[in-house]
Amino acid sequence: MATKNLTAADFNETVEGHGIVLVDFWAAWCGPCRAFAPVYEELSEEHPEIVFGKVDTEAERELAQAFQIMSIPTLMAFRDQILLYAQPGALPRQALAEIIAQVEALDMDEVRRQIAEQETTAAQQ
């Protein structure tokens, strides 16, 4: 699957409707964003089972604001509707490939257990 442009109207539906969703927050005027785009596109072709979304921060200001995007490009990785990774900066191909491999390898039952444990601890404080 090639990259998919995401908007506020379809962002939640996309994240909720797919297992792994990567999101690239970018803007046309951003040099590092333009440098990262071909890497992101190339890996999207290699991983058709993953949704590779793109959010234009100029067109989708409210969405960028909701995720507190302060620097672009920013990459986010969701799996089973859980945000697992969020970092600004253009990544080289190998780094993006490693992030994908790590997200795919996660034991999501263990991730959910750790989240529940953190929430319980926070509620007790």
Rank of each mutant, 00 (worst) to 15 (best):
Y40N: 02
I115E: 00
A27H: 04
Q102H: 09
P38G: 00
T14H: 06
E41G: 01
W29T: 09
E98G: 06
R113A: 14
A101H: 02
A35C: 01
L22N: 02
E16Q: 15
C33V: 02
I100H: 13
G19C: 03
Q68F: 05
A77Y: 07
Y40V: 09
V23L: 08
S44N: 03
N5R: 11
L6T: 02
S71M: 03
F25S: 14
E46H: 08
I72M: 08
Y40S: 13
E119G: 02
K4A: 14
E49H: 00
I115Q: 01
P38N: 01
E13R: 01
A8I: 01
I115L: 07
L106F: 10
Q124H: 09
T7A: 04
R34F: 12
T57M: 06
I99P: 03
A101D: 10
E49I: 04
Q94L: 06
A28M: 10
L43V: 05
V111C: 05
A86H: 04
A8T: 00
A59P: 05
H18V: 04
E58Q: 14
Q125L: 13
T7K: 15
A105L: 08
G31S: 13
R61F: 12
E16T: 12
M1K: 10
Q68S: 14
W29L: 01
L6F: 13
Q114L: 12
N12E: 14
A77P: 00
V21W: 03
E98P: 01
L6N: 11
W26F: 15
T74C: 11
V39I: 14
Q118P: 04
F25L: 09
A97V: 00
F36D: 05
E62I: 03
G19Q: 15
Q114K: 14
Y40I: 10
S71E: 12
F11E: 02
A97E: 15
Q81L: 03
A97M: 00
F36K: 08
